[in-house]
Amino acid sequence: MKITNGDELLNLENNEFIGEVPKLTNSQININGKNNTLVCEENVVLWNSRIDFNGDNSVLYLSSNNFDYALNISINGNNACFIGKNNYFNGMSSIILSESQNVIIGEDCIFSYNISIRVADAHLIYHTKTKERLNYSKSIFIGDHVWLGQGSMILKGTHIGSGSIIGANSVLSNKHVPSNTTFAGSPARLTKEDTFWLGYSVHPWSELTTIKYSQYDSENFVYEIDDNTLDFEDIDSDINKFAKPDEIVKYFESTFLEAGKNRFSLK
């Protein structure tokens, strides 16, 4: 089923739509399976986007956003993808979910141009002697207020804590990125600790504005581990226990939407 008008989501067969009808601007949603659930909060606009449900029993949760979503998402069966509020897409980002793995993205992130997020290598790699598979797919977690630089690739098993910065053209696979750190390179490595970032663009700044922001005395974007911090591995395990998509939706709502600032902190 090809959907190019949001109102068509109200007449799905063998699949479910929950929430507010999104606005589709030069965008389409293709559903080629059954028992899938799409959740859209209010203020969801898909711009030049494509969402493909290529299998069964998957959940895509799109939170309310002050900005347009610019996404190509491929969901291939038994996957869960949660995208939090008010993420800024400065160009098209690609997300591919495979082999029953999941993608969780927090809120207030910046996705620069040509971001790629993939939980799988797609093809199989084996050890020549043991004949055992080496490259199992793994879920990806990106916390709140994360800046992904242009051309960065976030690959299987990567966990990025809130407040972090990923440099342009970085490649991260099975990486553990603590909160308030900067990683860059291919493969990416730690380049700075104890960093945070602001979303202002410096392009039009005068010398006076530069001087004004030479220091920013705030703890708003400094993240710590506290009693409300969630464990990424536990989240993944919890999601995979659920047999029905509506159970996953309820889990997202009860777990993520009620958690505090440090929900996705990582050390």
Results as ranks from 00 to 15, higher is better:
1 M>G: 12
5 N>R: 12
7 D>R: 14
7 D>C: 09
7 D>K: 15
16 E>T: 13
16 E>M: 05
21 V>F: 08
21 V>W: 10
22 P>F: 03
28 Q>W: 09
32 N>G: 07
32 N>V: 07
34 K>S: 13
37 T>S: 02
40 C>W: 01
44 V>Y: 01
46 L>H: 01
47 W>A: 02
47 W>R: 07
50 R>D: 01
50 R>Q: 05
51 I>D: 01
52 D>K: 01
53 F>W: 03
56 D>E: 10
57 N>I: 04
58 S>P: 03
58 S>E: 04
60 L>F: 11
65 N>Q: 09
67 F>M: 10
73 I>L: 10
76 N>E: 12
77 G>E: 10
77 G>M: 09
79 N>G: 00
79 N>V: 03
80 A>T: 13
81 C>W: 08
81 C>H: 06
83 I>P: 03
89 F>D: 07
91 G>C: 08
91 G>N: 07
92 M>F: 01
94 S>N: 14
94 S>H: 14
95 I>F: 04
98 S>D: 08
106 G>K: 00
107 E>G: 11
113 Y>W: 05
115 I>S: 03
121 D>K: 13
121 D>Y: 13
125 I>S: 14
126 Y>F: 15
129 K>S: 09
130 T>K: 06
131 K>W: 04
132 E>Y: 07
132 E>I: 04
134 L>K: 09
137 S>E: 06
140 I>D: 11
145 H>K: 11
146 V>E: 01
149 G>Y: 07
152 S>A: 15
154 I>M: 12
155 L>F: 09
159 H>V: 12
163 G>N: 04
164 S>C: 04
168 A>L: 08
174 N>T: 11
177 V>P: 00
179 S>A: 04
189 R>N: 02
189 R>E: 03
192 K>Q: 13
192 K>P: 00
193 E>R: 14
193 E>A: 11
194 D>C: 10
195 T>Y: 07
196 F>Q: 05
196 F>K: 02
197 W>V: 08
202 V>I: 15
209 T>S: 12
216 Y>S: 08
219 E>M: 11
221 F>C: 02
228 N>E: 15
230 L>S: 10
230 L>A: 11
231 D>P: 00
232 F>Y: 12
235 I>Q: 12
237 S>W: 08
240 N>S: 15
251 Y>M: 04
251 Y>S: 02
253 E>C: 12
254 S>E: 15
255 T>D: 04
259 A>Q: 11
260 G>P: 05
260 G>C: 10
260 G>Y: 12
261 K>G: 08
261 K>E: 13
266 L>D: 02
267 K>E: 15
267 K>G: 08
